[in-house]
Design a protein around this nucleic acid. Sequence first.
RNA 1: GCGCCGGUCGGAUAGCGGCUAUUCCAGGAGACUGUAAAUCUCCGGCCUCACGGCAUCGUUGGUUCGAGUCCAACCCGGCGCA
Length: 299
Amino acid sequence: MKPKILVILGPTATGKSDLAVDLALKFNGEIISADSRQVYKGMDLGTGKITKNEMLGVPHYMLDIVNPKTVYNVAKYKARADKIIADIIKRGKLPIICGGTGFYIDSVVKNITLPDVPPNDKLREKLEKESIEKLLKLLNKLDPEISKTIDSKNKRKIIRAIEIAKVLGKVPPIKTESRYDAIQIGLIAPDQILKDRIFKRLVKRIDIGMLKEGQRLHKQGLSFKRMEALGLEYRYMARYLSGQITKEQMITELNSKIWQFARRQKTWFKRNKQIYWFDIIKKNSIIKVNNIVNKFLKA
RNA sequence: GCGCCGGUCGGAUAGCGGCUAUUCCAGGAGACUGUAAAUCUCCGGCCUCACGGCAUCGUUGGUUCGAGUCCAACCCGGCGCA
């Protein structure tokens, strides 16, 4: 019998964090964040990180675990999350994974076995300078199989494949043998509502000092280049703070980028047919969620 | 009123008279094996899809074998002079 875990997921701005706390209180749970940006210390307002007060005493994990200068990744996430989950289960509590980073969630929930090859920054830097054609040829020599199926336009993925093949001889097929019995709850809202929530939230974030946070991070040594790579609010704050764009531009462009991001999240989650979806504007959704979780835990 | 400049897909933009009118952004669909808020792909006038066909570059007319590209008039916008 696999241990039971609860997963709260969905696109940004649907209120996942609050629901997770709510369910944690009801079902004696502890929360593991699944957000690729909230792992970074000091990135709070821009990521919409839950505050101490909002946690209502429920333990949260995978928040603030690394300096934003350090690049975190799925493999690190999965390894650490698995340990935390094991510990929570051992203590007889319910692990609740909550977040919007589909890849991170799946790595844990589906137990994706990632090839044991850590990033090789020097190699990446070297390969980055080569043309796609050259890289494809190189990959084809190393692993003809994968070179047929790989996204031949995506340099980053080709480089990673080369990186793996250089060490393992080839890119191993993916293994997904789930070790948990997971119930996945998805929060969603109609597009127009979601867009509206995203915009209002952005305005509010700026209101409560998001730009100061960006400034502070930069002062503490976080380069604009790194901020650019962190995406969304940090990317656009970097552009604004370095004088490339106006504040107005930042707001309108960032707003549509966040919406595009939400759409990509929806696309990712759409393939997962095991998710129980709940529309956050429907009044009875919360009750339904409670019922379904209750039933799941008793079964 | 005169002069100059300009009117090309939602916005911005390219287009020595000659094959399928360009690129960027916004918009839509999708991919995702250690950067995943990243990275990448496709779509975008109409004919219900494909094949194929028909359009289209402010308007009208003209020159030309052929016009977004040249000419004329008109309409609209900007600037300058009055």
